[in-house]
Each structure stands twice: as C-alpha cells, then as structure tokens.
C-alpha cells in the first residue's frame, strides 16, 4: 500500500467515526457498518464530508448499496476519490 493511500485510509477512518458518531477505537476494517449502527442517514453525512474534504461528489449507486463492512466503504471511497483526482488532474 502506498503511503498516500495509507494516509487516505487513516483520514477516512477518522471521518467515518466522526460523521457516523462512533468511537474511533470501535472501528476496524472488518466490522459491519450495521454493527456500528451506521445507517443510511449517516451515509449521507459521510458522503458530504468526503465532498468537503476531497471535492468528490459521490451519488448513491449500485456499488454503494453493496457496501457491508467498513473496509467495503473505505475501498469504494478511495476508488471514487482517486477517480475524481484523476479527472481533475
């Protein structure tokens, strides 16, 4: 994993914890979002924070509805942010 991606992963984990109102210590990549009580309304908050921080607009698509674990959400967010950054470059 590149350093850039590690930083991004760390930032995103913090962001999910903050917007999902979950204790950062409780979040591990394998945990299901459901177990953390992160629901669709929290998703919208997380997506808003991603827009604010990275400038990437992520609308709800099929991939997003398939997200089950924290890792799924991180993978998707990273791919969308990288996609956005590539398009901006």
């Amino acid at each position: 994993m590149s350093t850039k991606r590690e930083t991004l992963t760390k930032e995103l984990l913090e962001l999910v914890a903050q917007e999902g109102m979950v204790e950062p210590s409780e979040i591990t990549p394998q945990k299901k979002l459901e177990e953390l009580d992160i629901q669709s309304a929290d998703f919208v908050m997380i997506l808003m924070a991603i827009e604010e921080k990275y400038g990437a607009y992520v609308s709800v698509d099929n991939e997003l509805t398939d997200v089950v674990t924290v890792q799924d959400l991180l993978d998707l967010a990273i791919s969308k942010i990288e996609e956005h950054q590539a398009a901006e470059a």
Binding site: V44, L47, Y57, V58, S59, V60, D61, N62
Partner: peptide, 21 residues
C-alpha cells in the same frame, strides 16, 4: 438535492446497471 446524493453527476439511466441518480 445534491446533499441527498440522489442526483447523478453524469447521465440519468433508469433501470440500467450503471445508474447512479
């Protein structure tokens, strides 16, 4: 409406696999 994330930033494609708003 943007904040609700139900609008597509691309093209509107009802029923299509790649639809996103």
């Amino acid at each position: 409406w943007e904040l609700l994330r139900v609008m597509t930033a691309d093209v509107n494609r009802p029923f299509s696999k790649d639809r996103n708003g």
